[in-house]
Nucleic acid binder design. Structure first.
Lengths: 225, 225
DNA sequence: CGATGACTTGAACGCCATCAATCGCTGTGG
DNA sequence: CCACAGCGATTGATGGCGTTCAAGTCATCG
């Protein structure tokens, strides 16, 4: 499944891609994953950390009977698979055909031992993940279905809208498993928002969405306080 | 509300209390909070970080209409209020009369600038918080009411059972707001677990609980994979 | 074209929320 | 000392939101 397509011997020469993590002594490689394939599994040794170059990734946990909770979607530029223990706590899968860069966690830790800027970067990313997870607990614990979908749209709007249109890489089931709902409920909530005039479907696929009323959507999403 | 009771000029002399955070140049103080009082509010500047010496603390977020989601309970020894941004993301309140130690965040950061062991400690604590939040999203997104209450009991059993009995510091509403339920549903779930013989109420208050069947409870709680 | 997958929509059900009554314990004041 | 208010908790009755089950549409692909 994993096809190595390129070896980049010196990450430092392509500074923008891994952002703060770039460091001359950390080597990284690129790799393509077909739609639907696993990148790493929960409880596997966390040998690498990853950055999405192009495409989209979901990270999730499963219960024994198959119930799934997606913790986050990772889009171009996002880092995922960063663990502090030795094992991955989520399974990661490509949502669409995806290119990811990866680097040995070991190398990162070796650098972090002596380079406090690197530790800071890792801390910063961990904190960002924490903040996202905390906001998500409020959503999952206390928001209604329409509020959840509105919050999802606001989040995705920020992350992938270009020229007034966002093209969702994930299907309704993924959205549902991210929001703690069923795909039918997600669909109904989208219909409600469409009827309110907050959004429009553009293409034939129902995944190209234009937000008509960002303020209304944000208010509905019931963010903090 | 905040009553300063003690100034400890050199944290290093009491190494066990602040654990990994102990450092000779970080000064900390102690303080008592009466049951129900606020320790810090969401969106306030994060001037201090705290450790529970005795008692219990809840940290939560609110929606505009009063819906509340408790993110975590903090018991003796737990650190809370650690932020990487400049503002607190939760409100913190004492659940019962509580003694907490606190120290200037600024001092901590000053030490962290040159002391990589300190950054590591902070990273470790942040990671622990992240892991807890991630497990909690699975619970809130996908578990049934009885599974949630069972998971809560397993968690609390580990953290505060002594001599086979745990004495919960929080009331049913707090538990409900932690689990994304109502207090009535929590009460009914506890009744179900009692009737199954998994637990017993001991005192007159319904907050002293003995777990009769930890394995059964853990299975019901539906932890990962 | 038939098969398949993604999505929507409808109908019925069920879990949990809501509303309400009751119980027991605690503390307070007559 | 006891009546009574107040709080925490349980229990019951009812209702509603989201789930489940099912049908149907549309686009894609063999």
């Amino acid at each position: 499944v994993v096809v190595l397509t390129n070896i980049i011997p010196d990450a430092d020469k392509r500074p923008r891609l891994l952002g703060e993590l770039s460091h001359r002594s950390v080597r990284s490689s690129e790799c393509k994953y077909a739609r639907g394939t696993e990148i790493f599994g929960a409880e596997e040794p966390a040998e690498y950390i990853y950055q999405v170059i192009q495409g989209a990734v979901r990270t999730y946990k499963l219960l024994s009977d198959g119930r799934r909770q997606i913790g986050a979607f990772h889009l171009a530029g996002d880092i995922f698979g960063l663990e502090n223990g030795n094992l991955h706590r989520f399974t990661a899968e490509a949502i669409v055909n995806t290119t990811a860069r990866f680097m040995k966690r070991e190398s990162l830790e070796r650098v972090a031992k002596t380079n406090s800027a690197m530790i800071r970067s890792i801390l910063r990313m961990t904190t960002d993940n924490l903040q996202h997870a905390e906001d998500h607990t409020l959503l999952l614990g206390r928001k209604t279905s329409v509020e959840r979908v509105a919050a999802f749209l606001v989040e995705m709007d920020h992350r992938l809208t270009q020229a007034g249109v966002m093209v969702l890489p994930m299907n309704r089931r993924d959205i549902a498993d991210y929001l703690g709902l069923t795909l039918e409920t997600v669909s109904r909530a989208l219909t409600v928002l469409k009827k309110k005039g907050f959004l429009k479907f553009l293409g034939v696929t129902q995944r190209e969405i234009a937000v008509m009323n960002p303020a209304g959507l944000t208010e509905l999403a019931e963010f903090d306080s």
